Amino acid sequence: MGVALFTLGGTISMAGRDRLDGAALTAAIPGLETLDEPLDIHDRKPVGSGSLTFVQVLDVAESASAAVRAGAPGVVITQGTDTLEETAYLLDLIWPHEEPLVLTGAMRNPTLAGHDGPANVLAAARVAAAASTRGLGALVVFNDEIHAARWVRKTHSTSTATFVSPDTGPVGHVIEGHVRVLSAPPRPAPLPAPTATARVALHTVTLDDEPDSLAALAAGQDGLVFAGFGVGHAPAVLVPALGELAARMPVVLTSRTGAGSVLRSTYDAPGSEIDLLSRGLINGGLLHPYKARVLLKVLLGSGADHDAVSVAFAERG
């Protein structure tokens, strides 16, 4: 059995009004015959990545896992790029195999000059089959760069170089068809897949923010991710509401900046990280707010209590 390719739709398959299936997509890839492992195609119902759900992603994860158990040396998933940084992290959290799980897609559809889909799929297939990527979990391959799902972000709405890892850089590259892993980040043990649906809200703080908006957003939720200013700060007017929410649900403190960590002990004014953590908020560390929400949903959907959530974020943030 070769590398399993699961196609979910997205820009990479959008040829005008038509959608390319896996056979049509791979037929347009020069050099595919040079792969050491052939591609075993599994077409899924195409869906825009903005409409993907946890249930759908977990279903693909189970199918990918079955392919590995049947002998696939690795897995490639093609999908839209809008939520790829989140789906990659979700898959990484629960992926139990040494075989790599590689996500890719395209920023230019097949009707445009410079369509990047074929090159990305070819590179992703090489990464999925490489011995050097075993044990690295879920990876994102774009533009001949290899990124750990934990760190990668989409940073530009149109650029083919949109996927970057601001805090670490790529873990490797595909150079002249050869996979070069330059750093192997430590990967915590996989988590159990959630068995229940947890509702987790995300609030990004803004200038002149209002407590009523925060309270309304958090109503009926099981958890909240708060994307604060800078190193993890909030307007003083929001502090009482955040403390009240943290007393009844996990509230994870992250930064809206897109890179860098929430601090723990540098600033001690109302709304600072020391103040917010003392009120029960959980430090999200280096996790981007979108990924912190994914982790919190997985934890709560698996029955984790407040203490278990705190431990998991201390380990993974």
Rank of each mutant, 00 (worst) to 15 (best):
residue 177 G to D: 05
residue 142 F to K: 00
residue 312 A to W: 03
residue 280 G to L: 08
residue 45 K to Y: 10
residue 234 A to N: 09
residue 65 S to A: 15
residue 45 K to F: 12
residue 220 G to M: 09
residue 94 I to T: 13
residue 194 P to G: 06
residue 8 L to S: 14
residue 172 G to N: 05
residue 177 G to T: 07
residue 312 A to L: 12
residue 2 G to T: 06
residue 243 G to D: 11
residue 14 M to N: 11
residue 49 S to Y: 03
residue 79 Q to M: 14
residue 45 K to P: 11
residue 100 P to S: 08
residue 56 Q to M: 13
residue 264 R to I: 08
residue 309 V to F: 05
residue 166 P to R: 10
residue 177 G to E: 06
residue 302 S to F: 03
residue 267 Y to F: 14
residue 265 S to G: 14
residue 72 A to N: 04
residue 232 G to N: 08
residue 264 R to G: 15
residue 133 T to R: 00
residue 47 V to Y: 02
residue 216 A to W: 02
residue 87 T to I: 10
residue 49 S to A: 06
residue 243 G to P: 02
residue 188 P to S: 11
residue 310 S to M: 13
residue 54 F to E: 13
residue 77 I to E: 04
residue 250 P to C: 10
residue 186 P to C: 00
residue 247 A to K: 05
residue 183 S to N: 12
residue 246 A to K: 09
residue 315 E to Y: 00
residue 154 K to G: 12
residue 157 S to V: 14
residue 19 R to L: 15
residue 23 A to H: 15
residue 184 A to E: 15
residue 52 L to F: 06
residue 128 A to R: 01
residue 223 G to Q: 05
residue 40 D to W: 07
residue 143 N to V: 01
residue 234 A to M: 06
residue 72 A to E: 07
residue 36 D to L: 11
residue 236 A to K: 10
residue 263 L to C: 02
residue 81 T to Y: 03
residue 27 A to K: 06
residue 209 D to S: 10
residue 135 G to N: 12
residue 191 L to F: 08
residue 244 E to S: 13
residue 31 G to D: 07
residue 77 I to R: 05
residue 205 V to L: 07
residue 288 H to A: 13
residue 45 K to V: 14
residue 174 V to R: 09
residue 288 H to S: 11
residue 300 L to I: 00
residue 240 P to V: 07
residue 155 T to R: 15
residue 316 R to K: 05
residue 112 L to V: 12
residue 98 E to Q: 15
residue 291 K to C: 08
residue 47 V to L: 15
residue 138 A to V: 03
residue 303 G to D: 05
residue 219 A to P: 01
residue 127 V to C: 03
residue 173 H to E: 11
residue 22 G to C: 08
residue 240 P to T: 06
residue 81 T to Q: 04
residue 280 G to F: 08
residue 240 P to Y: 04
residue 176 E to P: 00
residue 250 P to G: 05
residue 62 E to D: 14
residue 59 D to S: 14
residue 90 L to T: 03
residue 245 L to S: 05
residue 173 H to V: 13
